[in-house]
Nucleic acid binder design. Structure first.
Length: 484
RNA sequence: GGCUCGUUGGUCAAGAGGUUAAGACGUCGCCCUCUCACGGCGAAAUCAGCGGUUCGAUUCCGCUACGAGCUGCCA
């Protein structure tokens, strides 16, 4: 009884991929895959002016990194091609369907020029409003033919009634009804011969057998017009799933200005694709069982679009960072080293044990760039203040710190095994003999070898990585500083 | 301006007439501990307002407020 689900992601190649679009793509993928359906990629390049070179590659790259493998698309024919609207346009497809509508009286040629259209505009509440006045609807067949023969530029408009209502059903928002008088006679075919998004969508979704149209909330108000198109053709409309929008922390639509509006931006900032996908899945949807961290496979299994909610969601960078940190902690080491290495190399030029250093920060970072300020002291001892030796809880001050360091220096000089375990035994032995608290010895040592208030790892870990020579050098510097 | 949609802690959210109104991020506190993290434990904090309907409303209805989207030969 139920037919195979087919969803489509239909981006315009106009630049970076906005996270809102990525979420749309994700949900489309999930809706299809949850029920073993097909996910189709269709390129909507009907706006010749906005086309951006290289945007196609961005789309493919993003989809691949996000793991959203399409079943059909420009590069994977599934029998419904072409999958690029400009290529579909070449066959005169859209014009052909528009003419069918003209024959039915559901559309008409419009020859109005820019000036006349301009004169129809009025400013209400500071905004330009324009509703077409059906001027060209009343042209006779002969007049239309004459203008066509003369080569007067034209568009084809939808002919919407002025009375009655139109209703469509959305899976999330329910039944929505509008008065037909609100429906503008939107352009179906532009004067350059290309279809508008509004028209091409309906035609292609139908021709490609799309069962669920998933898109942003901003299309809800034009949906009644699409409904009328389906009705005019006598086609059964798809199920509509309109998604709540994603906003920035000021509750405004996410824009380029906030610097994290696109998938590329986020990758540049050190986020990993899986975490981004995981996070945006949770923007406007939640699973039944409260799990928050899941793979795309797990997500596919539990995704039920009926749990999508209606209200807009704020894109919370703080939580994304947390989630990214969770992914880093759980990442297998090889991939972790590989992803972390560029940041490591930015600050460490010396020959040191990279893996030991990176292991130290794995649970301490949320995004990869966090690594740099955490480990830079391995490269070069910072010029620190001796105030750092004073720590109330550790019961240390510059005097007892100096004492500890001075006493420990010869011990460390006579010791050759700078492994954590060996250093541990050595210093703990000193602590025991002297009868002080661990912190009273370890705080000054860690301070001396790191020059930092906070460090990943403790004194033993740091000394092991630094090695004997450098550790002693730094301790001597500490003694010098404290002696002054 | 008109139309449409929305409104549960700071944020993401569960909830779908009777609950101590889940959980997560963040915040704060405690534990662990040589620091910072990690991990563990705990705390503060929410149903936009007003009217109905009802024995009983976060939940249903209406109004108001606020927010957002649309109102392009952009998608």
């Amino acid at each position: 009884m139920s037919q195979k689900i087919r969803t489509r992601y239909a981006p315009s190649p106009t630049g970076k991929m906005h996270v809102g679009n990525l979420r749309t793509a994700l949900y489309e993928y999930l809706i299809a895959k949850h029920e073993g359906g097909d996910f189709i990629l269709r390129i909507e390049d009907t706006d010749q002016e906005r086309f951006v070179e290289g945007a196609l590659e961005i789309i493919y790259n993003t989809m691949e990194k996000a793991g959203l493998q399409h079943d059909e698309g420009p590069d994977r024919d599934g029998g419904y091609g072409p999958y690029v609207q400009s290529e579909r346009q070449d066959s005169g497809l859209y014009l052909e369907y528009a003419k069918k509508l003209i024959d039915k009286g559901e559309a008409y040629y419009c020859f109005c020029d820019k000036e006349r259209l301009e004169s129809l505009k009025q400013v209400i509440a500071g905004k330009e409003i324009m509703m077409y006045d059906k001027h060209c609807l009343h042209l006779s067949k002969e007049e239309v033919q004459k203008k066509l023969d003369e080569g007067v530029p034209y568009v084809i408009r939808q002919n919407n009634p002025k009375e009655g209502t139109t209703t469509f059903n959305d899976e999330i928002y329910g039944e929505i009804t509008v008065n037909n008088e609100e429906l503008d006679d939107m352009v179906l075919i532009k004067s350059d011969g290309y279809p508008t998004y509004n028209f091409a969508n309906v035609i292609d979704d139908h021709l490609m057998n799309i069962t669920h149209v998933v898109r942003g909330n901003e299309y809800i108000s034009s949906s009644p017009k699409y409904q009328r198109l389906y009705d005019a053709f006598g086609w059964e409309p798809p199920k509509y799933v309109h998604l709540p929008l994603i906003t920035d922390e000021t509750h405004k639509k996410l824009s380029k200005r906030c610097g994290h509006s696109s998938f590329e931006d986020l990758l540049e900032q050190g986020f990993i694709p899986e975490a981004i996908v995981n996070f945006i899945a949770l923007l406007g949807w939640s699973p039944e069982d409260n799990t928050e961290i899941f793979t795309l496979e797990e997500l596919t299994k539990m995704f039920d679009y009926r749990h999508i909610n209606k209200s807009p969601a704020v894109f919370d960078m703080v939580k994304l960072r947390w989630m990214n940190g969770e992914y880093i902690k759980n990442m297998d080491n090889d991939r972790y080293y590989e992803m972390a290495m560029p940041y490591y190399k930015n600050v460490i030029k010396k020959e040191l044990d990279e893996r030991k250093i990176l292991d130290l920060v794995k649970t301490r970072i949320e995004v990869f760039p966090d690594i740099e300020p955490l480990i830079d002291f391995f490269e070069k001892l910072p010029d620190y203040s001796i105030d750092m030796y004073t720590h109330k809880k550790m019961k240390t001050n510059s005097e007892n710190s100096l004492e500890v360091l001075t006493e420990l220096l010869p011990v460390l000089e006579n010791h050759d095994d700078y492994s954590i375990d060996s250093l541990h035994d050595l210093i703990m032995n000193y602590v025991a003999e002297k009868g002080i608290k661990n912190g009273q010895a370890l705080w000054p040592v860690r301070t001396a070898v790191s020059g930092k208030q906070m460090t990943p790892g403790g004194a033993f870990e740091i000394m092991e990585i630094l090695g004997k020579e450098e550790s002693l050098r730094r301790i001597k510097i500490g003694i010098d500083k404290l002696s002054q």
